[in-house]
């Protein structure tokens, strides 16, 4: 059995972290849901790199943040925010593919 990440997480968001990175936060309501996803192997450096079609060395940080029941990672941008051709100056709409991640839940 699997469930989509969007059904488990309270918040899935992306936003600039400075001008050269976009940071992603996946936040859960409960410790159980947080641990479920942490332990599932569905949301890791490897799965994110594959989903976004990028090399792992563009993922600069990948952290489980217990106080907020959150998984957080950051991706180096292809070009600095707001350069001509950058379609997302705030980096605010880059999280959507995470929603579809299938998390083993049994």
């Amino acid at each position: 059995m699997t469930r989509k990440l969007v059904e488990i997480a309270k918040t899935i968001r992306s936003k600039n972290a400075g001008v050269d990175k976009i940071t992603f936060d996946v936040i859960f309501r409960t410790e159980n849901e947080y641990k479920l996803v942490c332990d599932s192997g569905a949301l890791t450096r490897e799965t994110v790199a594959k989903l976004y079609g990028i090399s792992q060395n563009r993922i600069t940080d990948f952290v489980a943040f217990d106080p907020a029941y959150a998984i957080k990672f950051s991706i180096l941008r292809e070009r600095p925010s707001g350069s001509p051709g950058d379609p997302d100056i705030f980096g605010a709409q880059q999280y959507a593919p995470l929603m579809e991640i299938e998390v083993p839940s049994s």
């Binding site: 918040t11 936040i27 940080d61 943040f65 907020a68 950051s74």
Partner: peptide, 17 residues
């Protein structure tokens, strides 16, 4: 709340700590 405050502590930064 604990969730909203801790969640904000990591907002907009690449590392929450």
């Amino acid at each position: 709340t604990v969730a909203s405050v801790a969640g904000h502590a990591m907002y907009e930064r690449s590392n929450p700590f």
